[in-house]
């Protein structure tokens, strides 16, 4: 479950993120080799993004520089430095899905949601992201809503799924 930002902000008025949560994650991974990636994943899972303000805290704990941590965060497409919409809708842009109409699907979804790839809907509900292969190439075109895959996707199926799962994002 993703925690909502409103609650984490309340915990520490000085910093715009939940320092305690980050500290707990850092402690969990302490002294484990190559721990930066799992730490960033855990922070993003807990806070919904990796707050730039948390970078010094992470760097200190790992005996690294802020630059190094920033370099890593900015390298990987998954890591976000700002909160996203409540749900992430990833639409596959790779060849197999192209062969099955993903270009049209993407355009239709952009029109339906009113936002482009890499953007969030006006109501903050859905962030639309490109993804390059979900491994669902035998049921192209494919999308993923949160962790839920959807094969042979259509705009209707996607919007129905978004509506049905409106409450929480698994």
């Amino acid at each position: 479950m993703k925690r909502q930002m409103a609650t984490t902000r309340d915990l520490d008025p000085d910093l715009p993120y939940d320092t305690e949560a980050v500290a707990g994650i850092l402690e969990h991974w302490r002294d484990i080799p190559g721990n930066l990636m799992p730490i960033l994943h855990d922070i993003q899972a807990a806070l919904g993004y990796v707050p730039p303000e948390s970078v010094p805290q992470i760097a200190r704990a790992l005996n690294q520089s802020r630059a190094e941590v920033h370099g890593v965060i900015s390298f990987y497409h998954d890591f976000r430095s700002a909160p996203a919409g409540r749900r992430i809708l990833k639409v596959c842009q790779a060849e197999s899905c192209q062969a099955m109409g993903s270009r049209a699907l993407t355009a239709d979804l952009e029109a339906e949601l009113g936002c482009g790839l890499g953007e969030t809907t006006g109501d903050g509900e859905v962030t639309l992201e490109p993804v390059y292969c979900l491994g669902l190439c035998a049921c192209s075109p494919a999308v993923m809503i949160g962790d839920e895959p959807l094969g042979r996707a259509t705009v209707a199926a996607v919007t129905a799924r978004l509506a049905a799962k409106g409450e929480v994002n698994p």
Binding site: G34, M37, L40, V72, F75, Y76, H77, D78
Partner: peptide, 19 residues
Amino acid sequence: GAGAYICGEETSMLDSLEG
């Protein structure tokens, strides 16, 4: 991983594993 096709290349993957 975290959304990087290049990490399928072995040396890049090793760097990623190292954080």
